[in-house]
Design a protein around this nucleic acid. Structure first.
Length: 421
DNA sequence: ATGATTTGACCACT
DNA sequence: AGTGGTCAAATCAT
C-alpha cells in the first residue's frame, strides 16, 4: 500500500482538495479581470507552467497506478510531482519564503491538515486566492492545462465543431457511473447530437415565417436573480474538448454569438425542467483567450434534485460535522448551509465533486450558491460554522462510494415521473 | 418513437 | 437600435 501525501494525490484528488481548500472560483457574473495577480507578468506564467507540469505528472501517475507496483518507481514519480508543485509554490512565495521541497512543505493550496479521517479543509485561503481556480482534468492522453488559474471569467460554451463524441466520456476519472440514466454525463452537452451544420448548409429548413406565437411567456429576465459564475476547464478527451461536466444534466436550448466574444455562448436549462419544473439554467462560454476554459454562469437553482437524500446521507467520518444533509426538504440549500456561510465557494466545491464523481448524486445546486452564501444558514449552519467542515472527508467518502448503486438518475427520476413531451 | 441539438426569429432590456 | 435570452420548428441520433 502506497501512501501519498495528501497534496500529492493524483489529479482528481488534488484538484478536489484544491477546490475544497477554498480555491473554488465563484463570484458574481459581473466581475471580470484577472484572478491571479502575480505581480510581474512572467511570474504567473511560470507558476502555471509548474502547476501544469505537476498536474500532468499526477495524471500520468494515476494512469499508471493500476499497472505499476514498484514502490521505488511510484515514489520517484511522487517526488517529481511534488517538485513541480513545490516549484510553483516557490515562485509564488518568492525568494524569501520559498519552499524547496514540496514534499515536506505545506499542501500546495494550504489550509489542509490530516485529521482522523484524513485531510480536512479548515479554512479557505485569503480572498485573493479564492479566485485562483480553474479546473482541468488532465487525462492520460491529454494532460494539458491543469488547473485553476484564474482566469477571470466564465468559460465559454461548447464548440459544436469539436464536440460531442457520442460514446461514454473518455475522460471519466473516478467516475463510477457514466453519468445518469440519460447518459448525459456533461448533460445534454455531451449527449451527442447533431454536429453543427455549416452555415452554408443552413439546413433545409426554409425558415417558415416564424410561428412564434403571441406572447407565450418569454419571461422577462429577473434582474434580481442571483447568478454564479464558475470558470472550469474543458474536459480533455484526447483531441476534443467537452464543456465541463458539472454533474447535472442539461438540455441546450439556444446558442448565440456574443458581441466581443470569439466563441458563441450556449444556453442550457435543466433537463428535468419538464419533470419537476426545475428552473436551473446555465450559460456556457468558452474563453477567448483560453479555448480550454469555459465560463459557466449558473442561474436559478435545481429543484429537481431535492430528493437525493440517499446521496446526502453518506457516512461521515467520526469527528466530522454531523449536521444532517438529509433533513431539509431542499438538499441543495441544506448542503450549502451545512458547509457554512464562511465558505463562499462551497456550492462550487460540491459541484466540482459532483463532476468528479457520479454526477447527479450530489444534489447541490450551484445556482443556490449565491443564495446560500447570503441567506441565513439556519441552525445547522450555525452549528457547523465553527466546526471543521467535512468537505474533504465527504469528498473522499463520495469517491469511495462512487460505484455504489443509486448513482443513476433512474433512482431519482423514475420513468413514471417523466412527463416530458 | 423519443429526446437532444441547431438555428433563425422574437422579445425584453438597456 | 443593439444586444442578449428564449422559443420552437426542423433536423439529427439512438
Amino acid at each position: 500500500m502506497h501512501v501519498l501525501a495528501p497534496h500529492l494525490l493524483a489529479p482528481p484528488f488534488s484538484a478536489l482538495r484544491a477546490a475544497n481548500s477554498g480555491l473554488g472560483y465563484y463570484r458574481d457574473h459581473q466581475s471580470r479581470g484577472r484572478i491571479i495577480d502575480g505581480g510581474e507578468p512572467g511570474v504567473m506564467d511560470e507558476v502555471l507552467s509548474r502547476i501544469s507540469e505537476g498536474f500532468r505528472l499526477a495524471g500520468e501517475l494515476m494512469a499508471e497506478l493500476p499497472a505499476t507496483n514498484d514502490p521505488a518507481y511510484l515514489a520517484a514519480r511522487c517526488h517529481a510531482i511534488a517538485h513541480a508543485y513545490g516549484a510553483a509554490a516557490h515562485v509564488l512565495e518568492g525568494p524569501a519564503g520559498g519552499v524547496d521541497d514540496a514534499a515536506t512543505g505545506p499542501p500546495p493550496f494550504g489550509g489542509g491538515e490530516a485529521g482522523a479521517g484524513g485531510y480536512v479543509h479548515q479554512q479557505r485561503p485569503p480572498a485573493p486566492q479564492a479566485d485562483l481556480l480553474r479546473m482541468s482534468f488532465p487525462g492520460p492522453e491529454d494532460a494539458r492545462s491543469p488547473l485553476f488559474l484564474g482566469a477571470a471569467g466564465p468559460p465559454p460554451p461548447p464548440q459544436h465543431h469539436h464536440h460531442l463524441g457520442r460514446g461514454p466520456h473518455p475522460h471519466q476519472w473516478f467516475r463510477a457511473a457514466p453519468s445518469d440514466a440519460y447518459g448525459a454525463g456533461a448533460g445534454a452537452t455531451s449527449s451527442g447530437g447533431p454536429v453543427r451544420r455549416l452555415a452554408s448548409s443552413s439546413s433545409s429548413r426554409s425558415s417558415p415565417p416564424s410561428p412564434v406565437l403571441p406572447w407565450q411567456g418569454r419571461r422577462r429576465r429577473e434582474s434580481g436573480e442571483k447568478k454564479v459564475m464558475v470558470t472550469m476547464a474543458a474536459q480533455p478527451t484526447g483531441n476534443t474538448e467537452l464543456p465541463p461536466d458539472d454533474g447535472y444534466t442539461w438540455r441546450k436550448y439556444g446558442q448565440k454569438d456574443i458581441l466581443g466574444s470569439k466563441y458563441p455562448r450556449s444556453y442550457y436549462r435543466c433537463t428535468h425542467k419538464n419533470y419537476y419544473g426545475c428552473e436551473a439554467k446555465k450559460k456556457v462560454q468558452r474563453r477567448d483567450d483560453d479555448r480550454f476554459t469555459y465560463e459557466v454562469t449558473y442561474c436559478g437553482s435545481h429543484s429537481c434534485l431535492t430528493s437525493v437524500t440517499p446521496l446526502l446521507t453518506l457516512p461521515m467520518p467520526a469527528g466530522a460535522a454531523t449536521t444532517s444533509f438529509t433533513s431539509s426538504p431542499n438538499a441543495a440549500t441544506s448542503a450549502a448551509a451545512v458547509l457554512g456561510p464562511d465558505l463562499v465557494v462551497e456550492p462550487l466545491h460540491l459541484g466540482i465533486l459532483n463532476s468528479w464523481m457520479s454526477p447527479t448524486n450530489l444534489g447541490v445546486g450551484l445556482g443556490e450558491a449565491s443564495t446560500c452564501s447570503n441567506a441565513p444558514a439556519g441552525a445547522a449552519a450555525a452549528a457547523a460554522r465553527d466546526t471543521d467542515y467535512p468537505v474533504l472527508d465527504l469528498a473522499d467518502v463520495m469517491f469511495n462510494s462512487g460505484s455504489r448503486g443509486g448513482s443513476s438518475m433512474d433512482g431519482i427520476f423514475s420513468s413514471h415521473d417523466r412527463r416530458d413531451s
